[in-house]
Design a protein around this nucleic acid. Structure first.
Lengths: 247, 247
DNA sequence: TCAAAAGTGTTAGACGTACACCCATGG
DNA sequence: CCATGGGTGTACGTCTAACACTTTTGA
């Protein structure tokens, strides 16, 4: 066995945020893409990513390209899949290890958008480079699946939030309305969230109570895999979320 | 960006089979390991695998090393995870794309076991090379999780089987006894299985009916990912399972 | 006082679990 | 006939979806 891996190794990331359309009621899922500036697929939109550096972990590479693209720090980051079929690249074998990430909606609003970076509605994408349409589709499938049995919806929200806001996140991702009463009971029963003694003022109705994450509970069960969110993924720059409590 | 991936790319596979202990009632999960014949970790047991060849897909590489190790064809094969942290290899960066596979129990009984290949009980492993203990642990977690909401148990069985045999598979993987009556109803309601008009004779009680897979139903929902089992993973040798029907 | 959303209560059906019971075969 | 697992019936507790209803604010 001559033991040389004749394939390029790259890391890409599907970055999700929620965006409320100007007119519409429901928020929808959006993601940033970058325009390719070289062959193959020059001019096409593609997932942000790049070659793996020899001194960084896979998840760190994903967080780095995410940051380079959007200027943001991921609130949630999980490996999606390794795509490596022979024919997928057209011009040299490339194995892409793809992550998917969630960023806060408000931060995403003011995220940098250059000439070659643009946000798209996830369910209305143009034809992308390589097999990236399939990859986004798969990432969306995982996001929707995981929403049902984990707490990743919190990753889209700020420090405190109302149950209606949390419900809107679920509704946007799942694409259907949920019963407010039953949703409240479900969340309360899960203990994923703790009530603060504050309420949100300024509405034109009864002020809703504000809630906070229970930081002792992880956003998603990854099984025996070491949890990513326990350590910072990129070098401390501005203000990271660095609450390292455990139960 | 100097764009060269300075990491070796390898594919490994966690291969599961069920084995009934001579005395015990319950079957348990077993897997084959190979002894390393070179540094690092020379002499240690490790997952079967090897470098990725430039002309084969990732899943094909997994099926190939599985076949080279056990002489078997996987009944189920799924990508598990890509492990690529900087410090995991000790002597050169290695990114391992790991698959997990299920093989039929009877075939595994008579599988080739050379000097450097041995089967181990999955819950009683020695310290393995690299981070392979963690990998096996994660694969087991996935197997148990997936057993609850998919039909992968069928992969352990032959062409026809009784519901008691199918229940034994579930019990072995989940590690607890299941109510025969409720299990029957659950399986029947899922339509995963169709009754044949044959029964299994030779027992010392009422002969149980034999069942067959519904080949229109995939073993597990992989979402939008192309299904592996639709095409043969290794070149046709002896007698592959080649029923390519669809609903 | 009214509209609107927050928040609570109640009910009917689905579903999971436990277990009693009959059925059919080998010995 | 009897032991044994195959196979059926049934009842009970829990969970879920639907929706009526009360509460509390801004306007």
């Amino acid at each position: 066995m001559p033991g040389d891996a004749s394939a390029t190794l790259a890391v890409s990331t599907v970055i999700f945020a929620l965006r409320r359309e100007a007119d519409s009621e429901l928020a929808t899922v959006w993601l940033p893409l970058v325009r390719r500036i070289r062959e193959p697929y020059e001019g096409c939109w593609a997932l942000p990513g790049g070659p793996l550096r020899s001194d960084e972990d896979l998840a760190v590479a994903a967080a780095r390209t995410l940051n380079e693209t959007t200027g943001l720090t991921p609130r949630y980051l999980e490996q999606l899949y390794a795509f490596g079929d022979v024919g997928r690249s057209a011009g040299g074998r490339v194995v892409s290890i793809v992550y998917w990430a969630l960023v806060r909606s408000e931060e995403a609003e003011q995220a940098s958008v250059g000439e070659n970076v643009r946000w798209f509605a996830a369910d209305d994408l143009p034809p992308l480079a390589f097999d990236h349409n399939l990859i986004v589709e798969y990432a969306l499938w995982r996001l929707r699946n995981k929403m049902e049995y984990s707490r990743i919806a919190h990753a889209f929200l700020g420090e405190t939030f109302t149950l209606a806001q949390l419900r809107e996140v679920h509704e946007a991702v799942l694409g259907r309305a949920l019963d407010p009463a039953n949703f409240r009971r479900g969340i309360e029963a899960s203990n994923a969230v703790v009530a603060t003694d504050e309420v949100l003022l300024g509405t034109r109705h009864r002020p809703p109570r504000l809630y906070r994450y229970d930081s002792a509970i992880d956003l998603a069960d990854q099984g025996p895999l070491p949890r990513l969110n326990d350590r910072p993924l990129i070098a401390p720059q501005q203000h990271l979320n660095d609450e390292g409590k455990n139960a």
